[in-house]
Design a protein around this nucleic acid. Sequence first.
DNA 1: CGTGAAAAGGATCGGCC
DNA 2: GGCCGATCCTTTTCACG
Lengths: 147, 147
Amino acid sequence: MVDDVDRALLVLLQQDATQSYETLGQAVGLSAGSAHARVRKLRDRGVIRRTTIEVDPAAIGRGVCAYVLIKAGEWMGDPPTRDALLAIAGIQEAHIVAGAASLLVKVRTATTEELQATLREIFAVEGVTGTETVVVLETFFEKPVRP
Amino acid sequence: MVDDVDRALLVLLQQDATQSYETLGQAVGLSAGSAHARVRKLRDRGVIRRTTIEVDPAAIGRGVCAYVLIKAGEWMGDPPTRDALLAIAGIQEAHIVAGAASLLVKVRTATTEELQATLREIFAVEGVTGTETVVVLETFFEKPVRP
DNA sequence: CGTGAAAAGGATCGGCC
DNA sequence: GGCCGATCCTTTTCACG
């Protein structure tokens, strides 16, 4: 389904999605046309979800990062909960998790005041009985995925 | 430093970094050339860190996702710790955090057995006195950052 | 699946407002 | 800063192995 050449292409594109198919092809021992065909198929199959840019959070007023574990008194894995969390601007990711907490969300804000406001919003969501916040002081690293 | 037009460009590029500067320019009311100049400057200033692809984790054998809170008996915010964590294949992100735990890492593996192996590797790192693992059952959503 | 080459469309640069 | 226009390069497609 995804062979070694595909994996190599994925790694290269994760590093830099602006390089030409010519360059890409040379790196994996293929012609530009073939490299292109491979990548198109990866896109069509959904292996490549999209091409994006990585933005420096601090440069756009999102310098504060925290993970919030959310405890619930009821099942919160349904669309209404999802929509309520989606509507909170400070929340960037939301996951249903196993363990003492029901949900884990990643929050990014400009200031700690905004973080506080976001926590208030989280508490206002139906079913939330408690939160535990882990504030990120520094990000050590973020590796691209190795396929 | 980053005005409204820049912010609009960042949002558009996060959604789809493959669109032409012509399209981009029309969306923000600029010519293709000017849109291009804006984006280049955003790159040069480091606001745009890089252009990447988003890969479906399940498609490349990374279907299992977990967050691990790491407790330490000593300060673990120095390069040696960083390097030790970098060397662990299953770890995708590592953050220094405030709270009961010292570090928070994001782990992605193909299977729960591999997750277990990764936890073993984490315990082998100098200074680690305990871990608390939060397994992700389902990802609700991952929003692009709104500048 | 791969290749090579032609056609179409963008990226990029310089001169100018 | 932004616009326009002219190259140059890439993406994209196609007939063929």
